[in-house]
């Protein structure tokens, strides 16, 4: 099913379409590295907070790694503030952390170096993921940290059935090292969200 608004006097949106298999990797910034902690290289300023690495992968319905996916990450800084037009002059914004990175994974694996997000607006710490792949339209979801107590009060986690919540959990595997599997379809499918109808 495609998205269309039902209101008159609105323009018909252009349909989203698959990114296909050949998104040019060279179009991603920073030579395709996935490091949010180094937005301006070669200077002494670094973002505040706990530097972490999240090793992840994207899999299909057969459990195979999904090659050629374009991944985009979005998160608040260590104090829970997003770097946005309506917040950019706020003192809580970290000028050395935009919270945005994108990357095309050749084989389906990725490794995101970032700052552990803080608590924002009554939310548990989370990272928004936008996923583009051959064969599908854009998918969006949010990933959480399994060891956070605030997960039990998070409005997004509470909005989905309890048995699905663990599928959005990033698990700690060592000091400052985390892991996540994103499963696009089938058993243990990752819950995805609808930002066109929401």
């Amino acid at each position: 099913m495609t998205y269309s608004n039902k209101e008159i006097n609105r323009l018909t949106p252009t349909n989203e379409d698959t990114v296909g298999p050949y998104y040019p990797p060279s179009l991603c910034e920073n030579n395709n590295s996935l490091d949010m902690t180094n937005i301006r290289s070669g200077i002494v300023f670094k973002p505040l907070g706990e530097k972490i690495t999240i090793k992840g992968c994207v899999k299909d319905i057969d459990g195979k790694l999904s090659n050629g996916c374009l991944l985009e990450f979005w998160q608040p800084n260590s104090q829970g503030f997003y770097y946005r037009p309506d917040t950019e002059s706020h003192e809580m914004v970290d000028p050395w952390f935009t919270g945005y990175a994108r990357h095309r994974t050749k084989d389906g694996n990725f490794s995101l170096t970032t700052i552990k997000p803080g608590v924002a607006d009554g939310r548990a710490p989370n990272i928004t993921v936008t996923l583009f792949s051959d064969g599908i339209m854009r998918l969006v979801t949010q990933l959480f940290f399994a060891d956070e107590k605030s997960n039990s009060d998070d409005p997004l986690l509470l909005s989905i059935p309890e048995e699905l919540r663990e599928r959005l959990m990033i698990n700690k595997v060592a000091h400052n090292e985390y892991e996540i599997e994103i499963i696009m379809a089938g058993n243990n499918e990752t819950p995805f969200f609808d930002d066109l109808l929401s």
Partner: peptide, 8 residues
């Protein structure tokens, strides 16, 4: 797909 609650 799941709808996003207003708070999020």
């Amino acid at each position: 797909l799941n709808l996003i609650p207003e708070a999020a």
